[in-house]
Design a protein around this nucleic acid. Structure first.
Lengths: 189, 189
DNA sequence: ACACAAAACTAACGATTGTTAGTTAGATAT
DNA sequence: ATATCTAACTAACAATCGTTAGTTTTGTGT
């Protein structure tokens, strides 16, 4: 691959394995074997197994944080912001579906400052999302249900989209965005 | 506890630890320590660490399968069936929120026939759910979106409900059922 | 041809893993 | 009292874990 460092290759291979079995169940020997080298050789490129996990997760978490900032600054209506967030999740899912498994299932294996930073970003993201929903309710754009139920319903669907996107033969992104927005915003009945 | 065997205690303690760190990251020594005994003593009650996982997961999976059968036999309309399934998930979540983490995140660590059985039950469950949605569309009770998008949207929300139910102070079950049905079926706008 | 850096290798380390064997303490039943 | 059963214990096992040290191979630029 062009422009791909060996380190990035390792992280890509590892994320695929992490998705299958989880961070703890994947040994560095598993990762090495998948790359056709010995386990010790990995350490010419990475400093620890932990580093693979944290660079994987934190990079993605920053993508979500950046996306949320852009949505906030766009100065749109609450409902348009929710739509934009749905599209943000879909874009990231399409481009990093393997890494999302680690973010969802293995974030608790982060250590030290990495763990603190991740949890902070995650809480901030949810809080921002919640506030958008509350604004939408105040403006009458969103039904006056408990904001927490609405937030959870949308977010849990978007967060596990990666599981489902791979299984069904990777359909068109724009169609997916349209269908998901329809179902999540306007319901099924 | 009355009527609770030592084996059941072990499984309960283990499921709580599995939820925190995942099956692979929890050692039998962790489980033993949490029970105030030594690791070897566990083996007076269980035959292996695997047995804890499989009895935990398969029991829950059978609950879902049984629930689906009852819903099918009830002879209600498709929309009422979906409502009944939402309530089924909520009931199971309220009563077994810790074990649901293992079912969702660690099922791939099942081995042999247990793994085969679980995957089969899961596929059957999804197929039944999908057919109910299709019937609902044919009868005009459900909007004619792609059934797969509707199925995924509802199911991913219900499957991760355990994550959210614990965090928010365990609110009333009947209120939860009403709110969830409203949001999932009729949307937020 | 030579030097240098990148990236692989072998070998081994201490720690931890799930599990087994054999034994002992405490309660219950005969 | 004696036997039985349950449930704990200590000690150890082979396997695997992440990681390090030191060495060799491979490719590139001069």
């Amino acid at each position: 691959m062009k422009g791909t460092t060996r380190k990035e290759e390792i992280i890509t291979v590892a994320s695929r394995l992490f998705e299958e079995k989880g961070f703890t169940a994947v040994s560095v020997r598993d990762i090495a074997q998948e790359m056709g080298i010995k386990a010790a050789s990995l350490y010419n490129h990475i400093s620890s197994k932990q580093e693979i996990l944290s660079s994987l997760i934190l990079k993605l978490a920053r993508d979500f944080t950046k996306g949320m900032e852009q949505v906030q600054q766009a100065g749109a209506s609450p409902l348009e912001k929710v739509k934009a967030l749905i599209e943000l999740h879909i874009d990231i899912t399409v481009n990093h579906s393997e890494a999302l498994a680690a973010l969802n299932n293995d974030w608790m294996h982060l250590q030290g400052q990495d763990l603190i930073d991740f949890v902070q970003m995650r809480e901030d993201y949810e809080e921002n999302f919640r506030n958008i929903i509350k604004e939408g309710i105040e403006l009458g754009q969103i039904k006056p249900h408990h904001p927490e139920v609405i937030l959870f319903s949308i977010l849990s669907t978007l967060r596990t989209l990666y599981l489902w996107y791979q299984k069904r033969g990777k359909l068109d992104v724009n169609v997916l965005k349209k269908d998901m927005s329809e179902v999540l915003l306007h319901g099924i009945t």
